[in-house]
Simulated assay, not measured.
Amino acid sequence: MTEPGEQLPEEVLALIFRHLPLRDRATASRVCRAWAAAATCSAVWHDTIISYDCEREGTLLPYLSACLDHVHNLRLEFEPSREPSRRAATELLTALAGRTPGLRSLLLNCHGEKPLFDAGRDILDAVHAICRASCALRHLDLRRLPFTLDDALVLQASRGCPELRSLFLNNCTLVGSVSPDSVLELLKACPRLRALGLHLASLSGTALQVLAAPDRAPFAHLALRCACPEDVRAPPLPEEDWAAVRRRHPSLVVELELEPALPDESVTRVLQPAVPVAALRLSLSGDTVGPVRFAARHYASTLRALEVRAAASAELDAALELLAVRCTDLREVHCFCVVRPSVLHAFRAHCPRLRSYTLKLTREPHPWLPTLVA
Score class of each variant (00 low, 15 high):
residue 123 I to D: 03
residue 124 L to A: 07
residue 125 D to W: 02
residue 126 A to C: 05
residue 127 V to S: 01
residue 129 A to H: 13
residue 129 A to S: 13
residue 129 A to R: 14
residue 130 I to M: 04
residue 131 C to T: 01
residue 131 C to M: 01
residue 132 R to C: 05
residue 133 A to W: 04
residue 133 A to K: 10
residue 134 S to Q: 09
residue 134 S to E: 04
residue 134 S to G: 13
residue 135 C to H: 14
residue 137 L to S: 05
residue 139 H to N: 13
residue 140 L to P: 00
residue 142 L to I: 05
residue 143 R to T: 15
residue 143 R to Y: 06
residue 145 L to T: 09
residue 145 L to E: 08
residue 146 P to N: 06
residue 148 T to Y: 05
residue 148 T to L: 14
residue 150 D to H: 08
residue 150 D to Y: 04
residue 150 D to P: 01
residue 151 D to Q: 00
residue 152 A to L: 15
residue 153 L to G: 09
residue 156 Q to P: 00
residue 156 Q to A: 15
residue 156 Q to M: 14
residue 158 S to N: 03
residue 161 C to E: 03
residue 162 P to T: 00
residue 162 P to Q: 01
residue 162 P to M: 01
residue 163 E to S: 12
residue 163 E to M: 04
residue 164 L to I: 12
residue 164 L to E: 03
residue 166 S to R: 03
residue 167 L to V: 09
residue 168 F to G: 01
residue 171 N to T: 07
residue 174 L to I: 10
residue 176 G to A: 13
residue 176 G to P: 09
residue 177 S to K: 08
residue 177 S to Y: 04
residue 178 V to F: 05
residue 178 V to E: 01
residue 179 S to V: 01
residue 179 S to K: 01
residue 179 S to T: 08
residue 180 P to S: 12
residue 181 D to A: 13
residue 182 S to M: 06
residue 186 L to N: 00
residue 187 L to G: 01
residue 190 C to T: 14
residue 192 R to W: 10
residue 192 R to N: 14
residue 194 R to M: 14
residue 194 R to D: 10
residue 194 R to H: 11
residue 195 A to I: 11
residue 195 A to W: 09
residue 196 L to W: 00
residue 196 L to F: 09
residue 198 L to K: 00
residue 199 H to V: 04
residue 200 L to F: 13
residue 201 A to L: 11
residue 202 S to K: 02
residue 202 S to R: 04
residue 203 L to A: 05
residue 205 G to E: 02
residue 206 T to F: 09
residue 206 T to C: 13
residue 208 L to C: 12
residue 209 Q to Y: 03
residue 209 Q to K: 15
residue 209 Q to I: 10
residue 210 V to D: 00
residue 210 V to T: 14
residue 211 L to F: 07
residue 211 L to E: 04
residue 211 L to Y: 00
residue 211 L to D: 05
residue 212 A to M: 10
residue 212 A to R: 03
residue 213 A to Q: 12
residue 214 P to G: 03
residue 215 D to I: 08
residue 215 D to T: 15
residue 217 A to I: 02
residue 217 A to F: 07
residue 218 P to H: 04
residue 218 P to D: 14
residue 218 P to N: 11
residue 218 P to S: 10
residue 219 F to G: 04
residue 219 F to P: 05
residue 220 A to K: 11
residue 221 H to W: 14
residue 223 A to I: 07
residue 223 A to F: 06
residue 223 A to W: 03
residue 225 R to M: 10
residue 225 R to F: 12
residue 225 R to G: 09
residue 225 R to T: 11
residue 227 A to N: 13
residue 227 A to Y: 11
residue 228 C to N: 08
residue 228 C to T: 15
residue 229 P to S: 06
residue 229 P to G: 12
residue 230 E to A: 11
residue 233 R to Y: 07
residue 236 P to Y: 07
residue 236 P to K: 07
residue 237 L to N: 04
residue 238 P to C: 02
residue 239 E to H: 12
residue 239 E to L: 14
residue 240 E to A: 15
residue 241 D to P: 06
residue 241 D to R: 07
residue 242 W to D: 03
residue 242 W to V: 02
residue 243 A to S: 15
residue 243 A to D: 06
residue 243 A to L: 09
residue 244 A to I: 09
residue 245 V to P: 05
residue 245 V to E: 08
residue 246 R to Q: 12
residue 247 R to Y: 13
residue 250 P to R: 08
residue 252 L to V: 11
residue 255 E to W: 11
residue 255 E to Q: 12
residue 257 E to A: 12
residue 257 E to G: 05
residue 257 E to R: 06
residue 260 P to I: 09
residue 261 A to F: 10
residue 262 L to S: 09
residue 262 L to Q: 06
residue 263 P to Q: 08
